[in-house]
């Protein structure tokens, strides 16, 4: 068997090795006096530490709380958010209520469902098309189209844009509300 690992030694000292591993470690310790002595000394140290509290119990002095109470700063203040949350929580599910865990699970489930419905990919796509123009943008576009139509009319473009004339447009600027889908350069 190879040299003992630290984990094995700790498991041996803590008594957490399974029976098979414990037998292997004990067999190994028969062959390695150095490790066996180290473990024995560690065990002795642990026992001494364990007995320390019993031999010299540390107890608080009688004056501890009165002295502490006098030194305490202003009382802790609960923020309004935490206060409201605690009140709501206490109202919904009192401490030690058997329904407390189920109520929490239900609340989390409702929250997740609502979040999922708001953040679904469908909504995400819809939202990307939902950008609306401001009235200033609309005015600017209308004015630009009107000026463009006026320019086209002034330049007598009948030969350049036969399609628009064939559609019956007179090019007097009324086409400003054209949505531009049939624009042909």
């Amino acid at each position: 068997m190879k040299k003992l690992k630290n984990d094995d030694m700790m498991g041996y000292l803590d008594g957490t090795l399974d029976a098979a591993r414990l037998a292997e470690v004990e067999a190994y310790l028969q062959t390695d006096a150095e490790d066996a002595r180290l473990l024995a000394d560690m065990k002795l140290a642990m026992n001494e530490l364990h007995a320390w509290d019993e031999a010299e119990p540390v107890r608080v002095s009688d004056n501890f709380w009165p002295a502490l109470r006098d030194k305490l700063p202003q009382r802790p203040q609960r923020s309004w958010l935490r206060g409201a949350s605690a009140q709501l929580s206490a109202w919904l599910w009192p401490a030690h209520s058997p329904l407390r865990l189920s109520a929490r699970v239900a609340a989390i489930a409702v929250f997740v469902a609502l979040a999922a419905s708001f953040l679904s990919p469908k909504d995400a796509v819809r939202n990307t098309h939902a950008t609306e123009l401001t009235s200033a943008d609309k005015t600017f576009i209308q004015q630009s189209l009107a000026r463009h139509d006026a320019y086209v009319t002034s330049q007598s473009l009948s030969s350049v844009l036969p399609l628009r004339n064939s559609d019956g447009r007179d090019g007097d600027g009324d086409g400003g509300d054209d949505d531009g889908d049939d624009y042909t350069p």
């Binding site: 030694m9 700790m10 180290l38 000394d41 560690m42 002795l44 140290a45 642990m46 530490l49």
Partner: peptide
């Protein structure tokens, strides 16, 4: 582990 081993060696 190191604390226990250190203590053990010092006791030795």
């Amino acid at each position: 582990f190191h604390a226990r081993a250190d203590l053990a060696r010092r006791l030795r």
